[in-house]
């Protein structure tokens, strides 16, 4: 179980990226964080991954307070971030340095089969397409069997077809070990396709606006009515989340204009 308690992050320049986040993600649950840009989704992931330190509050994984990168937490970045000097095989095996050779071979080969890139095992990342690279990156995160997997808009740079096939690859890998997944996205369809719960966030400072459970059975039919309904519910929530803070500056501007007029 992954939980955030009064989590806040203020950057050195005074930007309040996150303010008082309280959330519990259950074991094996897929949670999608949705929101416009600048609402702290990526910051939240970086805090969980241990790449940044929280300003206040704490993150707990099964009761243990996370401070710094944790072996049970894996992350897939927005870009593939493969190491260009390692073959596809070695890239996937990057986090398996402490595992013996036979086991490593078996795990990486299995992951390669799962993502359908067995015949590319010995190629350089530069020879792969963007979608293939991102698949390798997902395999690299899965192969260490993390308890928590963080996905930072991993499909945002890909076209719709590639994205749909990657969703399937991701769910295929997820089915095996059922890690807890925190997915950051700005794609509502993607959230409804993958997640058990959508958390809608609100910018300036980043905070949680609403939580919506997505109880559709898997595999999810993207063309069905329940899917559409869920998408619409999230879109409505997003709409409200963006309206609320914008009224504030509008009123502020009116006040200033009035003051000038005076």
């Amino acid at each position: 179980m992954l939980s955030f308690e009064h989590l806040s992050k203020t950057y050195a320049d005074g930007t309040r990226a996150l303010s008082d986040i309280n959330l519990t993600v259950h074991e094996g649950e897929i949670v999608a964080l949705i929101g416009g840009s600048g609402c702290g989704k990526t910051t939240l992931l970086r805090l969980i991954a241990g790449l940044d330190r929280e300003s206040a509050g704490r993150i707990r994984l099964d009761g243990e307070v996370l401070s710094g990168p944790h072996p049970a937490v894996g992350i897939v970045f927005q870009e593939p971030r493969l190491l260009p000097w390692l073959s596809v095989f070695d890239n996937i095996a990057f986090g398996l340095a402490g595992v013996n050779a036979a086991e490593r071979q078996a795990r990486v080969t299995h992951a390669l089969e799962k993502i359908g890139l067995v015949e590319h095992a010995n190629r350089w990342p530069r020879d792969l397409s963007g979608g293939q690279q991102q698949r390798v990156s997902i395999a690299r995160a899965f192969v260490t069997n993390p308890k928590v997997l963080l996905l930072d808009e991993p499909f945002s740079a890909l076209d719709a077809f590639t994205r749909a096939s990657l969703h399937d690859h991701l769910l295929g890998l997820w089915e095996e070990t059922r890690p807890t997944v925190v997915l950051v996205t700005h794609d509502v369809q993607e959230a409804v396709t993958l997640a058990d719960r959508a958390v809608v966030m609100q910018p300036k400072p980043g905070r949680i606006f609403d939580e919506l459970p997505l109880t559709l059975s898997r595999p999810r039919d993207r063309t069905g009515l329940p899917f559409e309904t869920s998408v619409r519910r999230i879109l409505t929530a997003l709409d409200h989340s963006l309206k609320a803070p914008q009224q504030q500056p509008q009123r502020e501007r009116d006040r200033q204009a009035a003051a000038l007029w005076w």
Binding site: L51, F77, R81, L83, F94, G95
Partner: peptide, 26 residues
């Protein structure tokens, strides 16, 4: 971004230098 990959996999300073910095600098 590549250094962060090393951090996520909890490489020590020496490992980071050997596995990420050295090849990247070559």
């Amino acid at each position: 971004k590549l250094v962060e990959v090393g951090q996520v996999f909890r490489l020590s300073r020496v490992q980071l230098a050997r596995r990420i910095l050295l090849p990247a600098v070559l």
